[in-house]
Design a protein around this nucleic acid. Sequence first.
DNA 1: TGACTTATTGCAAGTCATTTGCAATAATTC
DNA 2: GAATTATTGCAAATGACTTGCAATAAGTCA
Lengths: 121, 121
Amino acid sequence: MTIQRRCILDSLTFFPQSVFEISSFLKTHGTPVDVVTIYRTLNCFVEIGIAGKTKFKDDFSRYELISEANHHHHLVCDKCGAVEDIPLDDKLLIDEINKKTNFKVKSHALEFFGICTKCQQ
Amino acid sequence: MTIQRRCILDSLTFFPQSVFEISSFLKTHGTPVDVVTIYRTLNCFVEIGIAGKTKFKDDFSRYELISEANHHHHLVCDKCGAVEDIPLDDKLLIDEINKKTNFKVKSHALEFFGICTKCQQ
DNA sequence: TGACTTATTGCAAGTCATTTGCAATAATTC
DNA sequence: GAATTATTGCAAATGACTTGCAATAAGTCA
């Protein structure tokens, strides 16, 4: 465990952030870390299961802390690109899939696109 | 409307295909079309609303015909990468979002990952 | 503590899907 | 059918992400 890894872990949150968001956060908060290191560290975090990676429409992957208690989905604003989190009850959908097919669902990603509260004003 | 556009339109289906899948289909079915042309044409189709584009985890965008009557979601196999379609009742989720937030949902993408029927055998 | 082994960092350079510039060609218009 | 406009396809650029590699920092064991 190095200083860089500690900083990257500390900058992770329960809402998804891109590597460049994390990078600029670290630049303005004491410990600049090379983006390559951030990529490598985050991929490592994903492998050992403490972070989640989601590929968004804008071509950026975003990373967030994983927590069963904090399972949620994403509201992505078409205008400003902001990503909100929302907890949703997805059991019904999974049940529906199990009824209709033989597919064994292991994970899922639900993304909703539209206009966020700020951009509506 | 050119021959290439006609061919690309004809090769589109209601399940999502990548540009390279479309390209190799066209190579083996009479009319090879440059991938650049396929990219440009598909983006055009998406703009005028006759095709849908989804970015998948494997870094490929996939395109499919849009049809209100054929609204569905995706089951992506973690092993072989195959994409199945499944119609799901998503009204409850949208209602849930409308109740909980001010976010105006305009579209959504629901993807489920797991093991497909073939790979289970 | 200090020498040794192993893992991590960061730069440069590579990869790969996708986009863009541009000249040649094909549709469309009159 | 000539003039205008849009489309094609090659080559080269873009941009997120990855890899090679030498330098450095952690962890280990005496």
